[in-house]
Each structure stands twice: as C-alpha cells, then as structure tokens.
C-alpha cells in the first residue's frame, strides 16, 4: 500500500473478512432514504447506461438501496463474507445489482460508470492506486461520491464510549479521521478535485442496548474472530 496512515493498513482491514464482523453489520444504522434521492440527482443527465460502481460495498447498505433506482449497480468488496451476507439481505438479489468479490484497486469491473460511491469505505482503499483508477472508470462528467453519516451523539457517548473503544480496540494505530480530511489530503496531492457536498435531514433510529453493543463488533479493531463467539472463534 502506498503512502497511507498505519491505521488503514491491510492488517486492520482484513478483519472485515470475518463472518462474525459481517454478522454484526446488521446492527449498524442505515442511511436515510433521502440520501439515495440525492445520489441519483448527482448522475450526469446524459450518462448512459445509468450504472454505479459501489466501492467497498460491505453488505450493500448503499448498493441494495440504489439498485432499484438505476440500470445497474456493480457492488465490489474484497470480503467474500460480506458479499455472501449482502446477497441474503433485503434487496440483495435485485436483478440490477451485481456483486463482485475482489480488491477495488484491481478487480475486473465493467466501466463506464456515472458515479463511483464509497460508503464509509474510502479510508481502506490504497488511495494512490484507487483514485487514478476511478478517474479512468468514470464516464465524462461522472463523479466519485463519499457516502457517510454525521452523528449527533449524546454527551455520554462522546465522554464515556470513546475511552472504552480506545482501551479495547485491537487497532493500536487508530487515530480520529474524517472523509473530508482524507479528500482534502488527496486534493493537495493531485489525486482529487472537490466539487460539492450535501447532507440529508437528521433522522432518528432506535435500537436495543444489546444490539448496539453487538454493532461495536462490526467495527475495525473489535472482531471476535473469523467465526465469532457462537463457535468459540
């Protein structure tokens, strides 16, 4: 991997191949429906076919919602476990959704794409390889879109949760980061040109405490093993 912070190295991203991590994904918050309307409005009007490459798709939080709105979504992830889970989830068998297992930096895909999306995954790419490749895969006027969330966390999460995560995380190189800061760095180095941003309305989503605790194990640094606790892994 080229010049990138230690916390994003394959040593740490490899845990997303663990079945236990993938199973815990279902307890993560979902993107607001409004976000997918905004995404389709970013498609260049004359772009054809209306195809999107979802890079680092995981279990398809972006791809499964986007597929019914477009002609084709190619959803790529290096984790076969994530894609197996994604196929089983609602919308995972949509005819306009094509799952592809492999590293986004080199796996065979089917350009041109009107958009390339990355839902909370961009930090794991080998940026100096992936972004030039994205430039070649996009149709004229096509865009790269970093998809994320802005959380309005209560005080106790900010004050009490973060120290616990720092104490138990297996990613000993972790440091706070943001997609905006990564893109600003890439822009400075000539790999990216920022064109815009948008945000949906704030939504509320509620879950039991047990599920929230489980969702922590879908994070980098918190894998309980390839198979998880049920099999003693």
């Amino acid at each position: 991997m080229s010049n990138q912070p230690k916390q994003f190295r394959f040593k740490y991203s490899s845990i997303f191949q663990d079945e236990s991590v993938v199973r815990a994904y279902r307890y993560r918050p979902r993107y607001p429906a409004e976000l997918f309307e905004l995404l389709t409005k970013l498609m260049p009007p004359t772009c054809s076919p209306r195809a999107v490459l979802d890079a680092g798709c995981g279990t398809g939080f972006v791809a499964r919602s986007l597929a019914p709105l477009l002609e084709r979504v190619d959803a790529v992830d290096f984790s076969a476990a994530a894609i197996r889970e994604g196929r089983r989830l609602p919308g995972g068998d949509h005819p306009q959704l094509r799952w592809i297992v492999g590293p986004i930096e080199s796996v065979a895909v089917d350009p041109p794409y009107c958009l390339i999306t990355a839902g909370a995954s961009m930090h794991w790419f080998d940026w100096e390889v992936a972004f030039p490749r994205f430039a070649r895969l996009l149709a004229p006027g096509g865009l790269f879109v970093a998809v994320g969330m802005r959380h309005d966390r209560p005080g106790w999460m900010r004050e009490e949760l973060e120290p616990v995560l720092a104490r138990y995380s297996m990613n000993r190189d972790f440091a706070p980061y943001s997609a905006g800061a990564i893109l600003a760095d890439l822009e400075e180095r000539g790999f990216y040109r920022s064109l815009g941003s948008a945000q949906t309305d704030t939504i509320e989503w509620r879950q039991p405490i047990g599920e929230w605790v489980e969702s922590i194990h879908a994070r980098n640094g918190f894998s309980r093993g390839p198979d998880g606790p049920e099999t003693g892994g």
Partner: peptide
C-alpha cells in the same frame, strides 16, 4: 430502554484525478 441515534446522511463529491 432503547438507544436513540440521531444522524444525517452525508455526501462529498468530486473528480478523481490521475496525476
């Protein structure tokens, strides 16, 4: 006893480049 999460979806877009 449910946890309430409040959040917005965010999009940052631009043009990838090959230096």
């Amino acid at each position: 006893g449910l946890i309430t999460h409040r959040y917005a979806g965010t999009l940052l877009w631009g043009q990838p480049l090959e230096p």
